[in-house]
Amino acid sequence: MFELRLVQGSLLKKVLEAIKDLVNDANFDCSATGFSLQAMDPSHVALVALLLRPDGFEHYRCDRNISMGMNLNNMSKILKCGGNDDIITIRADDGSDTVTFMFESPNGSANFEMNLMDIDSEHHGIDESKCCAVVRMPSSEFQRICKVLSSIGDTVVISVTNEGVQFSTRGDIGTANIVCRQNINVDKPEESTVIEMSQPVSSQFPLRYMNSFTKATPLSNTVTISLTSELLLAVEYTIAEMGYIRFYLAPKIED
């Protein structure tokens, strides 16, 4: 049997809002490590990795590892049936082809049963060691930049140098360049922009995906953007001391 109880149920709603437009169907893996997910978008350009650790839940019981295949749009529909302040319990019996969502508020409770799906998925090993530039900045600022740039062009060039991080785009009406410099705010660390770099790096990515990633903004005040020497982009939002949601995006390459 698998059962988890999340007092701050709105967190799960925010997680679904962050990933449901990027990924259609995904396996939620339940193990002693936590409630996790790894899935690619249908074009195999982006990968999302989610982890919610057991200690973040009021109650977490996992008798044996199970994988629950869910359509994320349907899961989101069910989560929207619960109130924002509800406590959410998710339960699945061993061998069952359904999962139960229970919403509790001081006024009552509601149960929803959703059919599970068989989804073929592969697990991917993620090597964090090739990182060559890391930028941590306010998530709202990153969201604003992606939105502004997508009104001008389709692709963003992200360049990290000693000067700062530059986001540039080009479109029919002209070009746009936005530079964020390192700025450490001791009193409000969440408003800081911190750049760590072992070598300058520059790569270009589709803005459509970047804007999709920023749907995770309500989960965290800050976002961490990493570029590897292979020009793979990772965008990470931490989830209130219980885990993270990470988006990986493949670069566009000059043909």
């Binding site: 090993g125 270009q204 670069p251 390459i253």
Partner: peptide, 14 residues
């Protein structure tokens, strides 16, 4: 022309 690379090229299957 800019080609979009596939994410699978960056990860190993486990």
């Amino acid at each position: 022309v800019n080609q979009q690379s596939q994410i699978t090229a960056f990860f190993s299957k486990t």
